[in-house]
Write a protein that binds this DNA or RNA. Structure first.
Lengths: 401, 401
DNA sequence: CCAATTAGTTTTCAATCTGAACTATATGGT
DNA sequence: ACCATATAGTTCAGATTGAAAACTAATTGG
C-alpha cells in the first residue's frame, strides 16, 4: 500500500507555503505579481507572504523588479518574478543530433545550439564527449549573460534509471544498460544533472511551456514512436517507468512482427522507417528522406500519400484505444508527426471517428507548439520544477553556502 | 494548470497527522497497535500520538481493545483498532441482481444480502424502491449488532456524476441521464451515500481488501467489459471520469461494429453476449447460460472452447496494449472472467506473450480474491477511506453533535 | 520487593500562521 | 499645497501544534 510514512511537522507548513508562493509567481508569467496580489491569490495573509517572499528573495530565486502601478490610487507594489539570473541547462542526445539550451527560471530559452551527430551505435563516452563541448558553449553563454547555472537536464531516447544515471535501453542508439555520468557535463552545478526520457521531457515541455493542459497525451514521432502521459499536470511513468510506449500498442492482431518482439505494433505502421519504406523513399540521411517524403506528398504521389494515410489511420486506432483506457481528452503531436500533420491529420481524425466516435474533440488534437526546443525545455524544466516544488531544500543549501 | 491553491495553515499539520495515525491503525489490520508502536511506525513522538489518539477515541472512530502483551517486560500497551461499532452500507445495482452489505470500519463484512432482480429497462425509481427494502435489512442488522451507520456507497454499472447523484449513462440498464436519490436509502447517516461505478468500486475493493497492489488494472467481465485503473494506490478516473473502459479498446481494426458506435472493440469479442453467442449458448437467464457454458467447457465442446479461447486471445491484445501505454504490471480478473479463468487463462497468456513478450509476469495475472463482495466492499470502502483520509472534518462534525 | 523495562503523560519550547494595528507611498480633489 | 483615500507592506501579540525531555504508570524477573 501507500507509504506516506512522513509525519507532519510544524515546519512543513512553511515548506508548503514557500512552494505555493513560488509557484504562484511562476504561473503569473509576465504578470510579475506584488506581495499583496500573491496574498489574495494564495489565500495567505500579507504578513505570511512578506515573510515567505523575504526568504525567496534572499536565496536569489526571486527578484524584485521595480514598482508596479495600476493607474489606481494607493501605494504601488513591488513586482516579483523568478530570477532571470538563475538558469538550468537543457541537453538532448538523439539519434541524429545533439542539442543544448540555457533556460532561465522563468522558462525563457536564453541560448540554444544544435549540431548534427550520427549517434547510432556510437559509444556513450564518445557521445558524452561531444555533448560536453556543446555544454561548454551554454556555460559560456551563461557567464556572458551573468546567469548562474543551478543544474541541468539531459534527455535521451530510451528508458532511463534516473537515480543511478543509467540508460537501461535505447534501442535506436543501440545502447543497452549504459552508465552515463551527466554530472560531469556541468561541474559545480548545485542541483546536478537529471537524466530523463526524451518523449517524457517533450511532454513536460508542452505542459509547462507549450500547449499545456492538466491531462493530455504527447505523441513523439522520432525514429521510434514514443509518448508521454500527463495526468493531473504530472508525468505518469508507471511503476516500472516505461509508461507511454504508444509505439507498441497493438493496432492489428495479424500485423507484422515488431522489433520489440511483439506483433502488429503501431510502430510497424507509423514509425519513421515504416513510413519511408511504405512510401518508397530510398535509404539515406534522415533529413534527406524527410524532404523527399514531403516533396512526394506535395506532388500527391499515391504511394507516399497512402503511406502517410495508413500511418494516420493506425495512429487513430492507437489513440482511440488510449482514449478509452485513460479517458484522454487531448493529444499533442510532436516530432515527425508534427512535420507530417497536414497530411496525417485527416486520416487520423476519420480513424478516430470510426473507432471511438465523439470521444476526442478534433480541436483537442493539436501539434506541438514548441517544435525542436520542447525536449530541451522539458529536460531543463524538470530541474526548475523541482526547485519550485521544494524551495525549502534549496534555501537550506544556499544558506549553508 | 494545477490548482493547489490551498495555503498551508498551522492546523493542517494536525489534519495530516490525524489521518496518518488513523491510516496506520487501519493498515496494521489484526495487529491492534499501541500508541508506542504507532509512534515508532509513523515517526511522530509518543506525546503527539497520545494527543492524536485521544481525539480519535473521543470521536468514536478508534477503540481501545484491552491490554496488549508481548511476553516481554515493561508496561503493556493499550491495543487500538478502528471501531467495530461504526459501519458503512455498501450497495450494488447490477443488471440481474441487487445487493447490500454492512461493512465495519475495519473492513469486515458484517452482513450481506443479495436478491435476483431483472433491472434492465426498469425505471430507476422502481429499482431504488427495491433496493430500499434491502437497505432496511442492513439497517436492522446494524441495529442488532449495535453498529452505528456513518454512510453508504452505491455502485451502478455505468458512468456516474458523483457530485450530482446522476447516472449519466448505464447502457446495460438502458438508463440515460437518470437522477438517483441515494441519500434516501439511509436517512440520517452523517456521511450520506456516495454513488460510484461498479467496475471502479470492485477495483477499489481489491485494492483495500483483496489482491491489493499500488498499481494494477482490474478487469470486470460483467454484461459489459469494464475496468478500473489503480495508480499509486488511487483510482484513476481521468478528466472526464470514464477511464478504464477496457471493453472498447480496439483489438481488431477490421472487427465488427460495436454498440458504442466504434468497431473492433474488445467487448465484441469478449463480452458476455459475444461469448455466449460464439459458443452457441441459446438465449435465457444469465445464470442458466453461464451454467450451460461451463458444462460445455467441461465437456470440451469445440465451439465453446473456441469462443472462450478467442475471448482470451483478444483480452490479451487489450492487456498488451494497456500494459504498453500505462506500464501496467499486474492485472486482476473479476466477474465473468473470474468464473471462466480456468479456460481463459491459457489463451490470454499466450496472447500476451505474442503481443507484449516478457512485459507482464503471469504470476501477476490473478483472479479476484473477493468474488461477489468485491463491489460492495469497494463501494462502502470509499466512504471509509474518506474518513481515514480526512478524519478532522469528521471530528468536527461529531463534536458539534 | 526492587531493578529494569516499556507505555503513556506532562511540561517547556520553537516554529509558524492569523489578525489587527501600524507605517509607507501613491492619487485625486479642493 | 494639502489632505482624504486607497493600497502595499511590516510589526507584534496570540493561537496551534509537534519535538524533546522529564516524569508517572504498569509490568516482569530475579
Amino acid at each position: 500500500m501507500n507509504e506516506q510514512t512522513a509525519p507532519g511537522r510544524v515546519g512543513d507548513v512553511r515548506r508548503r507555503n514557500l512552494s505555493l508562493v513560488l509557484d504562484s509567481i511562476a504561473r503569473t508569467g509576465e504578470g510579475k505579481p506584488s506581495r499583496a496580489q500573491l496574498a489574495a491569490g494564495t489565500g495567505l495573509t500579507k504578513a505570511a507572504v512578506s515573510s515567505l517572499v523575504a526568504d525567496l528573495v534572499e536565496s536569489g530565486l526571486v527578484s524584485e523588479v521595480g514598482l508596479y502601478r495600476d493607474g489606481e490610487r494607493g501605494r504601488p507594489g513591488q513586482g516579483l518574478e523568478l530570477s532571470a539570473r538563475r538558469g538550468v541547462v537543457g541537453m538532448e542526445i538523439n539519434v541524429d543530433y545533439l542539442a543544448v539550451g540555457l533556460v532561465d527560471l522563468g522558462g525563457n530559452l536564453r541560448f540554444h545550439s544544435t549540431v548534427e551527430s550520427r549517434n547510432r551505435g556510437l559509444a556513450p563516452e564518445k557521445v558524452m564527449e561531444r555533448l560536453g563541448g556543446l555544454a561548454d558553449e551554454a556555460i559560456a553563454a551563461a557567464a556572458a549573460a551573468d546567469i548562474s547555472i543551478l543544474g541541468g537536464g539531459l534527455a535521451v531516447p530510451g528508458l532511463v534509471d534516473e537515480q543511478r544515471n543509467l540508460v537501461l535501453s535505447a534501442p535506436n542508439l543501440h545502447w543497452e544498460h549504459e552508465a552515463l555520468n551527466p554530472q560531469d557535463l556541468l561541474e559545480g552545478a548545485p542541483l546536478g544533472v537529471r537524466l530523463s526520457n526524451e518523449a517524457n521531457s517533450a511532454a513536460l515541455g508542452e505542459l509547462w511551456y507549450g500547449a499545456g493542459r492538466p491531462d493530455f497525451l504527447y505523441v513523439s514521432g522520432e525514429v521510434g514512436v514514443g509518448g508521454g502521459v500527463i495526468i493531473g499536470s504530472e508525468l505518469y511513468t508507471g511503476p516500472g517507468g516505461s509508461a507511454g510506449e504508444l509505439g507498441h500498442i497493438v493496432v492489428h492482431p495479424d500485423g507484422p512482427a515488431c522489433s520489440c518482439g511483439g506483433a502488429g505494433c503501431l510502430e510497424t505502421f507509423a514509425g519513421q522507417e515504416a513510413i519511408f519504406e511504405a512510401a518508397g523513399i530510398p535509404e539515406g540521411s534522415l533529413g534527406g528522406r524527410t524532404e523527399l517524403l514531403l516533396a512526394a506528398l506535395v506532388a500527391r504521389e499515391p504511394r507516399a500519400t497512402r503511406a502517410v494515410h495508413d500511418a494516420g489511420r493506425y495512429l487513430g486506432v492507437a489513440l482511440a484505444s488510449s482514449a478509452r483506457l485513460m479517458d484522454i481528452e487531448a493529444v499533442v503531436l510532436g516530432g515527425h508527426f508534427a512535420v507530417l500533420a497536414e497530411w496525417l491529420r485527416p486520416a487520423l481524425l476519420s480513424s478516430l471517428e470510426r473507432y471511438a466516435p465523439g470521444l476526442l474533440d478534433p480541436g483537442n488534437l493539436t501539434v506541438s507548439a514548441l517544435e525542436h526546443s520542447g525536449t530541451l525545455l522539458g529536460a531543463a524544466g524538470q530541474v526548475i520544477r523541482s526547485v519550485i516544488e521544494s524551495p525549502f531544500e534549496f534555501l537550506l543549501a544556499s544558506k549553508l553556502a
